[in-house]
Design a protein around this nucleic acid. Structure first.
Lengths: 164, 164
DNA sequence: TATTGTTATACTCTATAACTATA
DNA sequence: TATAGTTATAGAGTATAACAATA
């Protein structure tokens, strides 16, 4: 009666393709010297300049101590700068440098190429369909598409796909 | 001319939803005492009994030394047994025990519930559509749906989503 | 000489908790 | 006393390479 049930493994396919997408993207960012975490920080600072390390940590779903070496590294490379807040000298105001802003533009190009490469096997109608279905799923499972959790947290298992 | 381009972030959504699917599945297997790696081994031994540690490592995309503690742990828990090959005494013949086979059935139930939960927000037509699109992508990007690579290898970045 | 499984070691990434400086 | 940032430490997970037994 039922078809050989392609939908029986949809969750599995989703896990595998998600991992593929992530690793392909990581490959591309590595070519410009960034880890995916670096890329996430740059992107967030692009849209929210002046963020403190604390609120950056919150948005990334990371712990404040993890943000320290992350910003250190970006600062050394001249992509991010730490400015002291004049109103509360405890926290920094993080901003992209000119170089950092340039890197953000590079990242956007990378994301576009990444998207194009990944969806190349589909027609544009199919891509649109897929985008809609995924957006529906994401919405229903309650993620804010703007929120960037999971910076690579210690969660054994998240890195592996379900094995049917 | 163009729509507000939902497809512009499809790759990103794919990464995020894939990570969600993986971590949800990991949660469920953890409830029965298995890591996702454990689950992968049990599944493979279910369909290929008598496998050696070496060929198991190959199929998992893991290194042989990693398989040792994995099998150790499953053996201690009485889910897998190591039998010596009569023809080549260098390698083991790995098999599920009766308990292991029972666990495999549990895993299949878990996978079904997982699938149902994940796709609950979609109609059955939409689920089927999604399954077809993902299968097309998977095929085009060349994975053998049966091959289970990525047992959680050391690949910094794979655990994090692209940050647009 | 090559191969299976094993062990020992080191490396990477991350979280936890204690610390400082400001408030 | 509470909060931002920092540091030191420890833990989990994995790969590498050397090793023993068998072929």
């Amino acid at each position: 009666m039922d078809l050989p049930s392609p939908s029986k493994r949809t969750a599995f396919l989703l896990s595998q393709l998600g991992a593929l997408a992530s690793s392909r993207f990581a490959e591309r960012t590595r070519e410009v010297g960034l880890t995916p975490s670096d890329a996430g920080v740059i992107r967030l600072l692009g849209r929210a300049p002046g963020l403190s390390q604390r609120s950056l940590a919150d948005r990334l779903g990371a712990v404040p101590s993890r943000v320290v070496p992350l910003i250190d590294s970006l600062q050394v490379r001249g992509l991010v700068e730490r400015g002291r807040s004049s109103t509360d000298r405890r926290n920094y105001e993080l901003r992209l440098t000119v170089e950092g802003a340039k890197m953000l533009r590079t990242l956007r190009e990378i994301a576009e190429k990444h998207e194009a490469e990944l969806l190349a096997p589909l027609t544009s109608e199919q891509s649109a369909q897929l985008g809609n279905l995924l957006a529906r799923l994401a919405g229903a499972h309650g993620f804010d598409t703007d929120l960037h959790r999971d910076l690579g947290r210690k969660d054994p298992g998240t890195t592996t796909q379900p094995q049917q």
